Amino acid sequence: MSEHGHAHEFDFAARVERVEPSATLAISNLASELEAEGKDVIDLSVGEPDFPTPENVVQAGKDAMDAGHTGYTSSNGIPELREAIAEKLQGNGIACTSDNVVVTPGGKQGLFEVIQTVVDDGDEVVLLDPAWVSYEAMVKLAGGSLSRVDLSPYGFQLEPALDDLAEAVSDDTELLVVNSPSNPTGSVFTDAALEGVRDLAVEHDVAVISDEIYERIAYDVEPTSLASLDGMEDRTITLNGFSKAFSMTGWRLGYYCAPEELVSQAGKVHSHSVSCAVNFVQHAGVEALSSRTDDTVVEMREAFRERRDMLVDLFDEHDVEVPHPDGAFYMMPKFAPDGDDQQWCEDALEQAQVATVPGSAFGAPGYARISYAASEDRLREAVDRLAEADLI
């Protein structure tokens, strides 16, 4: 107690108390403790590429700083970047102009703004499980209610789950969130699946967020942009960014493309929270979208593909079920088919010094998410350690 009377007790807002702390926190805290004890932890829990940002992009950021691009920009982003993003999305078949684009400090901020703008107290939002943990948190912060469709019986694919989705989506649904290629599963949804989403969205007049942040990291399949489908242009918010494709996680640069009426409303949340994305980072973004980075992106994707193939084979040798990932740099093996995946992840960390993320955090109990953003040697060693500890 202070000398001036009772210590203040905060009365926290209900919106914050509705949100759980990140379920990965316990694992990362434990990993930090083990590392502090000098243990060699193989961290397969991270959601970022283990490649440097392409050199030409780094140079463009430095050049922009040297040129004095260090002040505020217009709230929605510098014109050159919004033009480049619109052109990129037009290449995906989306009718997008620079007026439809908002540049944000990271894709996460874009999602937050859109959900704050579209979701009101009690509004129903449909998620496809396993789903990235922040969707749930953002919906709860906005006061929305969640309806969840479980894709795990279908190998994390959406097409065979369309009947289940049809049961979840109704005239009361405000928003549906689709993420393909997916975090945490690596699934890429088929055109038939996305057409099923379109039919339901049109029938029930539902808005859809299409989170395409992993779009450039897909193997043997070309992800389709939902907004390119007939009937989806005026109801889809396409969310993308630079973090994954260009290994720019710490630069914090993302964007969304949406109908102009939504851009003008979401622009209020944007301007009153972050003002704008960082000026010189936006200039680096223009360079990232140029053809000069294409080779670097392809090299990174091919490295991820080789790691995926290697891991799938290694887990197969140990009879571990792995729904086949076609994109991103994650897979979700079924490590704890009859048990507690949180406990399995803790055991993996304590007994094998391998850090993973419990599937239940994403709505997929029994599974754990592995990020293969690590070298082939480390990935192979991780599997060996899990086998030696009798965890696979």
Results as ranks from 00 to 15, higher is better:
Met1Lys: 09
Met1Ala: 10
Ser2Tyr: 07
Ser2Thr: 12
Glu3Val: 12
Glu3Leu: 07
His4Thr: 11
His8Asn: 10
Arg15Asp: 14
Glu20Ile: 13
Ala23Leu: 08
Ala26Thr: 11
Ile27Asn: 14
Leu30Tyr: 05
Leu34Met: 10
Gly38Leu: 14
Gly38Arg: 05
Val41Leu: 02
Ile42Tyr: 02
Val46Ser: 08
Gly47Pro: 15
Gln59Met: 02
Tyr72Cys: 14
Tyr72Leu: 10
Glu80Thr: 04
Leu81Met: 06
Ala95Tyr: 15
Asp99Asn: 05
Asp99Ser: 15
Val102Cys: 14
Phe112Thr: 13
Glu113Lys: 00
Thr117Gln: 09
Gly122Ala: 12
Val125Met: 02
Pro130Asp: 08
Tyr135Pro: 12
Met138His: 14
Ser145Trp: 05
Ser147His: 05
Pro153Phe: 04
Tyr154Asp: 08
Phe156Glu: 07
Pro160Gln: 14
Leu162Glu: 13
Leu165Thr: 08
Leu165Trp: 08
Glu167Gln: 06
Asp171Gln: 10
Leu175His: 10
Val178Glu: 07
Phe189Asp: 07
Glu195Gly: 09
Val197Cys: 12
Asp199Tyr: 11
Ala201Glu: 13
His204Thr: 05
Asp205Glu: 13
Val206Met: 06
Val208Ala: 03
Glu212Ser: 14
Ile213Ser: 08
Glu215Ile: 07
Tyr219Ile: 13
Tyr219Arg: 03
Asp230Phe: 04
Thr236His: 07
Leu239Ile: 05
Gly241Tyr: 00
Ser243Tyr: 12
Met248Asn: 01
Met248Gln: 00
Thr249Ser: 00
Glu261Ala: 10
Ser264Arg: 15
Val269Met: 10
His272Gln: 10
Cys276Thr: 08
Ala277Ile: 00
Val278Met: 01
His283Trp: 05
Thr293Ile: 15
Thr293Val: 09
Val297Tyr: 05
Phe304Thr: 14
Glu306Trp: 15
Arg308Cys: 13
Glu317Arg: 03
Pro323Asp: 07
Asp326Cys: 15
Phe329Leu: 06
Asp338Ile: 13
Gly339Val: 00
Gln343Glu: 15
Glu346Gly: 12
Asp347Gln: 01
Glu350Val: 05
Ala352Leu: 01
Ala352Cys: 07
Val354Thr: 03
Val354His: 01
Ala355Trp: 00
Val357Pro: 03
Val357Ala: 02
Pro358Ser: 15
Gly359Tyr: 03
Ala364Arg: 06
Gly366Met: 07
Gly366Lys: 08
Ile370Leu: 14
Tyr372Asn: 15
Ala374Glu: 09
Glu376Ser: 03
Asp377Leu: 06
Leu379His: 01
Asp384Pro: 12
Ala389Thr: 01
Ala389Gly: 04
Leu391Met: 03
Leu391Val: 01
